[in-house]
Computed example of a mutant assay.
Amino acid sequence: MDEVRDVGTPIDDSELAIEGALRPESLAEFVGQHKVRGQLQLLLDAARIQQRPPDHILLSGPPGLGKTTLAMIVAHETGRPLRMSSGPAIQHAGDLAALLSSLTPGEVLFIDEVHRMARSAEEMLYLAMEDFRIDIMVGKGAGATSIPLELAPFTLVGATTRSGLLPNPLRDRFGFTAHLEYYEPEELELVVDRAAAMLAVTLPHDGRAEIARRSRGTPRIANRLLRRVRDFQVVHGDRKGVDAVRAALELYDVDEIGLDRLDRAVLDALVRRFRGGPVGLGTLSVAVGEEAETIESVVEPYLVRIGFMGRTPRGRIATPPAYAHLGIPHADGALRFDEA
Rank of each mutant, 00 (worst) to 15 (best):
E25P: 06
A97V: 13
L22Y: 01
D268M: 11
R314I: 01
M124P: 08
A212D: 11
D268Q: 14
G315L: 10
P167W: 08
D206M: 04
E339C: 04
E250K: 13
D131E: 15
I73E: 06
A212G: 05
T319Y: 08
R80V: 12
V114Y: 03
R23E: 07
P219M: 02
L16V: 01
T312R: 04
E189V: 15
G66S: 09
H34T: 12
P81S: 10
V234C: 07
Y182P: 05
F174I: 00
G38N: 09
N223L: 13
P219C: 04
E19I: 02
I295N: 05
R336C: 02
R119H: 03
I317D: 06
E296F: 00
P169L: 08
T155R: 08
K67T: 09
E130W: 03
A265M: 11
G282D: 14
A265L: 08
T104K: 15
M198R: 15
L190A: 12
L22M: 04
Q51V: 11
T312H: 05
S102F: 11
A197F: 04
L249T: 03
D2Q: 06
T202L: 04
D45F: 07
E256R: 14
T78C: 14
G66Q: 07
L326C: 08
S85I: 00
G258Y: 01
K67W: 02
A248F: 01
L59W: 10
G94T: 15
H115E: 14
R80F: 02
K67C: 12
L259F: 13
V288T: 01
F154M: 00
E250R: 14
I295F: 02
P204V: 12
E19S: 09
R314K: 13
M124H: 03
G237A: 11
G217D: 06
F176N: 07
A209W: 07
D2Y: 03
F308T: 08
P10K: 06
P219H: 02
D231W: 02
A97S: 14
A222T: 02
S102Y: 11
Q50D: 12
V114F: 04
H56N: 15
E113W: 04
T78I: 05
A144H: 06
D263E: 11
A89W: 04
D45E: 14
A197N: 02
P167T: 11
A197I: 01
P169G: 06
G277L: 10
E250G: 13
V304L: 09
E291A: 15
A318M: 11
P313R: 09
S26N: 10
S26F: 05
L262D: 02
S60L: 05
A265E: 13
